[in-house]
Design a binder for these strands. Structure first.
Lengths: 296, 296
DNA sequence: AGAATTCGATAGCCGGCGGCTATGGGGCGG
DNA sequence: CCGCCCCATAGCCGCCGGCTATCGAATTCT
C-alpha cells in the first residue's frame, strides 16, 4: 500500500468520479484508475462499484475508508506539526540536573533565559551522575548541571561555575545547634544522613575510612528535600554544600579538620550541535556571579 | 512522504542502527539511509542524530514518531481488516423496506436466512419510494421490499410476491366497528388517516377525485405504527392493506365499491452483483407462501 | 433518431525513483 | 595497530508511476 494510492482513494471516495478525482490530485485519469485497481488488488476486494454517474463505494470500500483516512490524516498532521515546529521554533530545552544541586541556583539565569526566548519550553531531568551522563549520551538532555562527573566519557564539554565548601547542617533543636564549630570526632557520634546521590559520596566515605573513623548509624537519602526534612525533624544531621537552600529551622556548624569542597559544572556534549537556547543558557551560567557560594 | 519512508523510519527508531533497520526491512542499508534523508528533507529537520553506537532520535524525531506510527498502524490495520473481511465473509446485507410494508411479513424468511448464513449482519433501511430507489441506486441497499416503485428507474429488477386488498380499519369503539361492510359515501364522513408513505397514496387520492367525492379532515401519517396508534385511540380510521399486523382493538370493515389492491415486490438492481445472502433472500421470498394475504 | 458528451478502461511510451553493489572514511575495541 | 563496525557516497539498473491517445459504452442534447 503506497501513500499516493491512499490519497487517490480518498479523493475518489469524495468525488465518486475518476476524472474529477484525478484532477483534484493533479494526475491524469489513467494513473488514478490504475492506482485504485492496484489498491483493490492488494486488499483483495473491489473498493468502488463503477457505474458512470452512479459510481459509489462498495460495502468493503466503506469499511476501508475510516482507516485509510486516518492513515492519510496522520501523515498530513505530521507534516503540519513539522512545519509549525520549524516556524515557531518551540524546541524544548532539556536540562539534566544532579539531584545534589539546588535548582534555586539556576533560577536567576533561567529567568533571564525565558526573557530572551519567549515561549521556550523547559524540561528538567533529575538524577545521579550515571543517569546524567546517560541522558547526555542519548541526547535526552542537551546540557547538564552537576558536580564532577568523573572521566566516564571523554566527549563531555565542561565549564566550572564555582567551588563551594560543605558544612554540617543540624536542626535548631539539636545539641550542636549553638556551636560555631565542632571536631570531626564529634561528628562520628551523630546519626549522619548520607546524600547517596552526591557526585562526591564515595570520596566522602573514603575520607572517613582514611582517618580510621567508623561512621555510626547512617540513613541513606535519595533526595535533597527528604534530607532537609529529616534534619528539620532532628532525625539526623547532614554534610550539605553551602549553596543548598536551607530553612530557618536549620543551623550550620563548621567541622574542624574537614575541608571538603565540590565544584559545580555546566556540561554539554562535544561535537554535537546545541540549540540557541542551550548555548545562551551556558553563556549565562558561565557569566553568572557565583561569589556568594565560592569557597574562600 | 511515502509509505516505505515511514516504515524505514519506524524500524530505525526501534533499532537505532541503520544497518540492522535495513535488515529488518529487507533492503540494503544505502536504500534506508537515502529514504531517511529524504524524509528529513521533506519535514525540514533532522530526525536522527548519527553517532555510531549512540545514534538516537532528535527532539524533532521524537515528536514525529507517534504520528508516523499511527500512519503506519492504520494502514496495517486496514490490510488486516481487509483480509479478515475476506476470510470471515461478514459482509452485512442491507435491505430497504417501504414504510408501508410490515416487517413481520419478512420475519419467517429472515429467520430461515439467518439459519443458512450464521453470523450474517442485517441492516434495515426504512423509507418512502423515492428514498428506496435512491438507496438502491447508490448501493446503500442491496435489495428492497416495497409496493410498486413506478417507472422511475429502468434498472430495477422486480419480482412480485403477492397482491392484497385494502380494507377499512376502525377502533373497536367506533360506530362502524360492528358492521361487515359500508358504502363508499359513508367513508367520506369519517376522519381518514392518510398513509403518506404508501406507494399508492397518489392513486388513492385520485380515486376519490375521480368519483367527485370530497374527503373530509384527514391526518397525514408518516409511519404505520403511528397510524395504528391513532386508530386504536379512535382518533380516525384508515385504509390498511390486509397484511398489516393489527392489534385486537381494531376491527376491519369492507368498503363497497372500493376494490383497491397493491402488489408487494422484492427489488434488486439489474447488472449489479449481489451477495450470496441477498440472492438467497430473494429466492426465499419468491418461493414463500403468500396465500394468506393474496387477494381473491 | 442521431450527434455530442461523459466516463472509465486500455495500450504503450518515458523518465525518475528506489532497489542494488562497491567503496570510502572515521571511530572504537581487541 | 589492525580490524571491525557503522554510516555516507557513487553509480548502475529495472520497475513503476507518470503521461498521451484512443476506445466503447452509456447518457444527454438537439
Amino acid at each position: 500500500m503506497e501513500m499516493h494510492q491512499v490519497r487517490y482513494f480518498l479523493a475518489l471516495s469524495r468525488t465518486l468520479n475518476f476524472t474529477r478525482a484525478a484532477e483534484e490530485c493533479h494526475v491524469a485519469q489513467p494513473s488514478l484508475t490504475r492506482a485504485i485497481k492496484q489498491l483493490e488488488e492488494e486488499l483483495g476486494a473491489e473498493l468502488f462499484r463503477r457505474e458512470r454517474n452512479l459510481t459509489h463505494l462498495t460495502e468493503f470500500g466503506h469499511r476501508m475508508l475510516p482507516m485509510l483516512q486516518q492513515c492519510y490524516d496522520s501523515a498530513a498532521s505530521a507534516k503540519a506539526l513539522a512545519s509549525s515546529l520549524k516556524a515557531g521554533n518551540v524546541a524544548p530545552l532539556s536540562i539534566a540536573i544532579s539531584t545534589a544541586v539546588d535548582l534555586a541556583l539556576l533560577v536567576p539565569d533561567l529567568t533571564e533565559l525565558m526573557r530572551a526566548f519567549k515561549g521556550l519550553e523547559l524540561r528538567f531531568l533529575r538524577g545521579t551522575r550515571e543517569q546524567i551522563v546517560d541522558w547526555l549520551k542519548k541526547g535526552e538532555a542537551e546540557i547538564a548541571v552537576a558536580g564532577p562527573l568523573g572521566e566516564s566519557w571523554d566527549r563531555l564539554d565542561s565549564w566550572p561555575l564555582f567551588t563551594e565548601r560543605f558544612s554540617l547542617a543540624v536542626s535548631a533543636e539539636h545539641p550542636l545547634a549553638g556551636r560555631k564549630s565542632i571536631d570531626l570526632t564529634e561528628l562520628v557520634k551523630e546519626r549522619l544522613l548520607i546524600r547517596t546521590y552526591c557526585e562526591l559520596v564515595s570520596e566522602f566515605i573514603d575520607f572517613f575510612k582514611s582517618r580510621q573513623l567508623q561512621l555510626g548509624i547512617c540513613h541513606k537519602m535519595g533526595a535533597e528535600p527528604d534530607l532537609i526534612t529529616l534534619i528539620e525533624a532532628n532525625l539526623g544531621v547532614g554534610m550539605l554544600p553551602e549553596s543548598t537552600t536551607k530553612s530557618g529551622r536549620i543551623r550550620l556548624v563548621e567541622v574542624e579538620g574537614v575541608d571538603f569542597k565540590r565544584t559545580i559544572y555546566v556540561y554539554g556534549v562535544a561535537g554535537r550541535q546545541r540549540s540557541a537556547a542551550a548555548n545562551a543558557l551556558i553563556r549565562l551560567l558561565r557569566a553568572g556571579d557565583w561569589s556568594a557560594h565560592e569557597a574562600a
